[in-house]
Write a protein that binds this DNA or RNA. Structure first.
Lengths: 192, 192
DNA sequence: CTTTGTTGATTGACCAGTCAATAAACAATC
DNA sequence: GATTGTTTATTGACTGGTCAATCAACAAAG
């Protein structure tokens, strides 16, 4: 039965199962056994590949963050000019890939984890600062000295819209969410 | 040793200890024993008064939400005129009472809890809708038909600023946070 | 002596992590 | 191409510990 080269497949399955399990049962009740069962293997194998439950959490976080990071880079590469770059950054946070119940739930749990776990906080901080930095640079040609505070406002707005969608009843609407942030930013830019 | 009339005192101590413990150790590792010890009693007594761990969580949530609700009502009562009411609503979310690391941490954990626990979601939903509703009514005289979408934007902004402060390194600065939301709203109102 | 407050001890369940054992795939040697 | 050994994949069974919840018993106050 055992086939070689299973490691990457198993790791991937476990990471996805971890995210799914966290989203479904909440971080309070996730167990290695449940994750492993969802990923179609024994809990012993999960330990074999990740060593500990904590390591699995961290790996899952890194996965979510790297997917998001890739999306941002892709959108930036395709953007032409300052306005387009700002728009790309905002919309990248609300693409169908990232803006799904499951992924949103993962982000929420990562926020909570980052409150007490230093490594999680560090990981999250990197991405948060990068977003503000990216926004700041993109806004510089348009807003000059106001670029930095504006970038922080946009970042806050993105997070806030994220939250409300995560907790709202209906299906998350990425297009509407992005438009909201863009509208608010546009109004800011129109005021001297 | 036993003194009569201890129930309200014990309940209060347990609720506060629950919040403190969640903030300190994170929702993943809270145990009834730790909470009870922090509140100065045995775990058996904690069960005696609340019946279950879940009930303690819910009671703690209700406490945080009721404190916040009282603050909002107080601010609204003292406000005169539409602008003052909007300002009061925004600032009430960032008073020193509510805008402390510990309370922020509690809110974050409640958000996560609300993803999987129906009663928590219901409780949170009531307060979220009330905030948007309050903001909408206060904005009506100033913004007319735009009041509702503006209210949703302000609410999102409040949540977002909350989040970023909760995860930032420095001490939360409520005054600056409130000013930021007010500035963004002012810019929105200045555009037809 | 009943009500209220309080705890130590106990229980039953569960969980993270370990380990020994098995089985396939691969590789080298004869 | 048969033999032998090595690596990788995989699991069932086990362990040490912890936790939520229960209970019996005790102490004060009315």
């Amino acid at each position: 039965m055992p086939k070689l080269g299973m490691e990457p497949i198993r790791r991937d399955a476990l990471i996805k199962a971890t995210i799914a399990e966290i989203a479904q049962t909440g971080a309070l009740e996730v167990t290695v056994s449940r994750i492993a069962r969802r990923a179609g293997m024994s809990s012993a194998l999960a330990h074999h590949y990740f060593g500990s439950k904590d390591a699995m959490f961290l790996a899952a976080m890194r996965h979510v963050l790297s997917v998001y990071g890739a999306e941002v880079r892709g959108a930036l590469a395709a953007a032409d000019g300052p306005q387009a770059r700002v728009q790309a950054l905002i919309r990248a946070s609300f693409t169908p890939t990232s803006f799904r119940r499951e992924v949103i739930a993962a982000w929420l749990n990562f926020y909570v984890l980052a409150q007490t776990r230093a490594d999680a906080a560090r990981l999250l901080g990197v991405y948060q600062r990068r977003l503000v930095s990216n926004l700041g640079h993109a806004l510089r040609p348009v807003a000059g000295a106001r670029a930095r505070p504006l970038a922080e406002g946009v970042a806050a707005m993105i997070d806030g819209v994220y939250l409300r969608e995560a907790l709202g009843a209906g299906e998350p609407d990425g297009r509407a969410a992005a438009r909201m942030v863009e509208d608010w930013l546009a109004a800011q830019l129109r005021t001297a």
